[in-house]
Simulated assay, not measured.
Amino acid sequence: MGWLSDNINLIGLLAAIGILALTIITAGALIKKMREAKPSGDLTDHNWDGISEFNNNIPVGWVLTFMVLVVWLFWYVFFAYPLDAYSQIGEYNQEVQTHNEKFEQKWANLSHEDMVNMGQGIFLVQCSQCHGITAEGMHGKAQNLTRWGKEEGIIDTIEHGSVGLGYDGGEMPVLGLSKEDAKAVASYIMADISEVKHTQYPDEVQKGKAVYDTAGCAGCHGPDGKGMPGMDNFAPDLSKYGTEDFLKRVLAHGKKGLIGQMPSFAYRNFNDVQIKALAEYINSLMPLGEE
């Protein structure tokens, strides 16, 4: 019974035994008193089908037990677990934090190739079960990540809408733009709004800005693409699209898709290096049908 070596567990067990003992003793004494006592005394004004209750004081034992519980609860919350004492959960969190700090120091200056390789390893272990080992989404069962962070991802969102990111502005509907206009908007976002600052279609950027302004994109994402002023969670900040910051939000909050719920990966305690590696791996993938 190694768990008894934890002082907090031991104190909690002793307290529970004490409470149980007091409850049994008090209840036994009151039951005995009820059996021996003869009905007498003042009745209250309450009456249910001819049954009334005596106007008696609260039992002293009950009051004492309640006060002891209140004192114990105050001590437990503010002076024992979890605020000011050892706990196994606290020890685990500290170990994770220490490991992540060592990990980040060791892998802080990886080359791009090494980052991509690390990200591939994380993806295969954590993500491929739903997105497939090629990240194409296993025939629509999950998001096709080969398009993520690229013009193709924006075009797909314009054509099919977006659901499940949990923004206050609601789900993004299908915009109904032509393929040419969608391509232009995607090039403008990647070149001028996103921190990536690069597009495959530089000749489409000016047209894309005009379409962005007239197609209603600014109504949710703001004129600069960073969202509506004073409404941080109204719509996605497009300046983060294609960066690890956008991926970090999805990993932290999860995503509700058309076929199910992607869970939050916050419990995995991914550190910044791992998230950056995963983002670089996904960005290195080529959309389906391209070389």
Rank of each mutant, 00 (worst) to 15 (best):
D213F: 14
A266P: 03
T23L: 11
N56E: 15
R249H: 05
G222A: 08
A85S: 14
A186L: 07
I275R: 10
K240V: 08
W62M: 15
V70G: 15
D168W: 05
K179V: 10
F74S: 12
A279F: 03
C220Q: 01
G132C: 05
G90D: 00
P39T: 14
K179H: 10
K256H: 09
S128N: 04
G153I: 01
S187L: 09
C127I: 11
L145W: 04
A186F: 02
D168Y: 07
G222W: 06
N100S: 11
R35V: 02
S284Y: 02
I24E: 07
N100A: 09
D6G: 05
G219N: 08
D84S: 14
A210P: 02
M138D: 15
W48F: 11
A266S: 12
F265Q: 13
L64Q: 09
I24Q: 02
F74A: 15
N9A: 11
Y188D: 12
M231T: 01
M172E: 06
M34K: 15
D114C: 06
L238Q: 13
G166W: 00
G170P: 01
K276E: 08
G169R: 00
W75L: 15
G132Y: 04
V211N: 09
I19M: 15
I25P: 02
D232W: 02
I8N: 12
A184L: 06
G225W: 04
A191F: 05
P173Q: 10
I51L: 07
T146C: 12
G169L: 00
A277F: 04
K179L: 03
H139W: 14
G227C: 06
E171G: 00
T44F: 07
P287K: 07
W3H: 11
L278M: 13
H221I: 09
K197V: 02
H131S: 03
K150Q: 12
T134C: 02
G41F: 02
G166F: 00
Y212N: 06
E36F: 09
A80T: 09
T26H: 10
I24F: 05
A15T: 12
I158P: 00
G149D: 08
D114K: 13
I158S: 00
E195R: 13
A135T: 04
Q105C: 05
V71C: 11
D45W: 08
W72D: 14
Y167S: 08
S162Q: 06
Q261K: 10
E113C: 09
E95M: 11
E244S: 12
L22F: 14
G164Q: 07
G227R: 06
Y76Q: 15
N283V: 14
V273M: 03
K141W: 04
D42A: 10
P223K: 14
Y86H: 12
S194L: 05
I19Q: 13
G230Q: 05
K141A: 13
V250E: 10
S178F: 06
H160V: 00
Q261C: 03
F246E: 14
Q274K: 03
W48Q: 10
M118E: 04
V196S: 12
N9M: 07
Y86D: 08
T199V: 12
E204C: 12
G61V: 14
H46V: 12
E101D: 02
V185D: 05
G90K: 03
C130G: 05
T65A: 15
G161S: 01
A186Y: 03
H160D: 02
G225Q: 12
M138E: 13
E159T: 03
Q274S: 11
V250P: 01
F234M: 06
A16V: 15
